[in-house]
Amino acid sequence: MMKKYLLLLLIACSGSVAFAQSNWDKTPYQTKSLASDGIKDVFVKTSGGSISVSGSGESPRIEVYVRGNNGQELSKEDIDKRIAEDYDLSVTVSNHELHATAKRKHEGGFNWRRQLSISFKIFTPRQVATHLNTSGGSIHLDNLTGNEEFSTSGGSLHIDNLAGIIKGETSGGSIEVSNSKDNIQLETSGGSVRAKNCQGKIKLETSGGSLHMEGLNGTIKAETSGGSIQASDIEGELITGTSGGSVNLTRMACSLEASTSGGSMHVDMTRLGKYIKLDVSGGHVDLKVPGDKGMDLDLSASRINTARVSKFSGEWEKDRVKGSLNGGGVSVKVDASDSLNLSFN
C-alpha cells in the first residue's frame, strides 16, 4: 500500500548557488522515520538544495533543512506560508522506493526574495541504489553499495566508501572520492578532482581544474583540459593527460600513458607495468625507472640527459635513443619537445 508523507520541503531557484549550501549543523526543520520501509532505492529531485545519502548504520530516516534566500533564518510559520503559496512538495514511499521531489508552482515572475533553500539528509541501509539530481547544491554519498547515479549543476560531489556502479557529474563544483571501488565515473566542468584509496575501473574528467590521485589500483583514465595532474602510489594502468598544466607522478607501479600540451612532466616509477608512453609538447621530462629491468627504449627529445648505462644495445644519440636495455622487455616511449632527463632507481 502506498504511504504518502507530506514533508515541508523546499527549493531554491535554478542555478542559485549562494544560498543552496547544506546546513547539516542546524536542527532539522522536519524529520521522518523510514525504519519500517525497507528502502532499496532513493529518488531525489530538487532545484536548489544539497543532498546527502548515508548507509552508515544510523536509524533510517529523512531529515529536511530549510532556510531562506542568502541563508536567511525563517520562522516555521514563514516557511509554512511560503511553501503553501509557492511550492509543490512531497515524499512518497512505495515498494521500498523513497521518492522526494520539490518544485515551484510558478516558474515565471517568481519573487527571488521569497525563495527557499532545502537540503535533504537521508539515512538508509547500506544496500541502496540512488538517483539524485539538484541544480543548486552539493551531493554527499557514503557507505553505500549498489548503483549510484547523481548530478548537480551548481555544487560539489563528495563520495566516500561506495561500492558498485558509481556515476556522478557536476557542472560547477569540485569532486572528492575516497575509499570506493568497482566502477567509478565522475565528471566536472568547473572544478578539481581528488581521488584517494579507490580501486576498480575508474574514469575521472574535468574541463576546468586539476587532478589529484593517490592510492588508486585498477584501470584508470583521468583527464583535464585546464589544470595540472598529480598522482602517487598508483597500481594497475593509468592513462592521463592535460592540455593546460604540468604532470607530476610519483611512486608509480603501473602501466602508464601520460601527456601534456602545456607544461613539464616528472615521472618516478618504482615498478614497471606493461608499458610507459609519455608525450610532452610544452616542456621537459624527468623520468626515473628501475635500472635493473629489461626495457625497449624509444626516446625522442631536444636533448637526452642520462647517467652512463651498461647492457644497452642500439642507437644512442643526443636527441634520439632506440634500443634494448638489460636485454629488452617493457616498452618505454617518450616524445618530448624539450629535454629528457632519464635516471635510474
Rank of each mutant, 00 (worst) to 15 (best):
A12Q: 05
Q30A: 11
K45M: 10
T240Q: 06
H106Q: 15
A253I: 00
S324T: 14
G245E: 02
E176P: 00
N23S: 10
G245P: 01
G49A: 07
L249C: 04
E107P: 04
G262C: 06
P60S: 05
I11F: 07
L186C: 01
I184P: 07
K203F: 07
S259I: 00
V193H: 07
G136P: 08
E187N: 07
L216Y: 11
I220A: 04
G108M: 09
G48S: 07
L238N: 04
S16T: 13
V334Y: 08
S210D: 09
R303T: 15
D78I: 10
R251C: 04
I51S: 09
S300M: 01
R303G: 08
M2T: 13
I122Q: 08
S151E: 14
P125C: 00
T124D: 08
G241T: 01
S210T: 09
N133L: 10
G191I: 02
C13E: 15
E85W: 01
S207E: 07
L287P: 12
I175W: 00
I159H: 04
G172L: 03
D335L: 05
T46W: 10
L162A: 06
K32N: 01
G108W: 11
S119E: 01
I184D: 00
C13I: 15
K311A: 14
F344M: 10
N111A: 15
D78Y: 03
V332Q: 02
G218Q: 09
N197L: 02
R61S: 14
D296T: 15
G38N: 15
N345L: 04
H106Y: 12
G173T: 00
T124P: 00
H106R: 14
V280D: 00
G328T: 09
A222P: 00
S16Y: 15
G244P: 08
K203T: 11
N248L: 03
H266Y: 12
A20S: 15
T145E: 14
T101E: 12
S302K: 12
K333D: 15
D37I: 02
E237R: 12
L89G: 12
L157S: 05
I79K: 05
D335K: 12
T219R: 13
Y65E: 10
W24E: 12
Y65K: 02
I165D: 10
R320E: 10
I220S: 05
E205F: 12
K121R: 14
D37S: 12
N197C: 00
S174M: 05
A20K: 01
D88A: 03
E187Q: 14
H266T: 15
D338L: 08
S119T: 13
R82E: 08
F312R: 09
G323A: 08
R126M: 06
P290H: 01
K3T: 14
H131K: 10
H99T: 15
Q72S: 13
L216F: 04
T27M: 10
S331V: 07
T242Y: 03
T152E: 06
S16V: 15
A258C: 03
T250N: 11
M269E: 00
E97I: 13
T206L: 03
G136D: 06
T134S: 04
S310I: 13
K196N: 15
N326G: 04
L9W: 05
Q21D: 09
D296A: 14
F110D: 06
G291S: 08
K3S: 09
E107G: 10
S331C: 02
G244C: 10
N345E: 09
E205R: 05
G55K: 01
V44L: 05
K167S: 11
V177M: 05
G109Y: 04
I159E: 03
E214P: 00
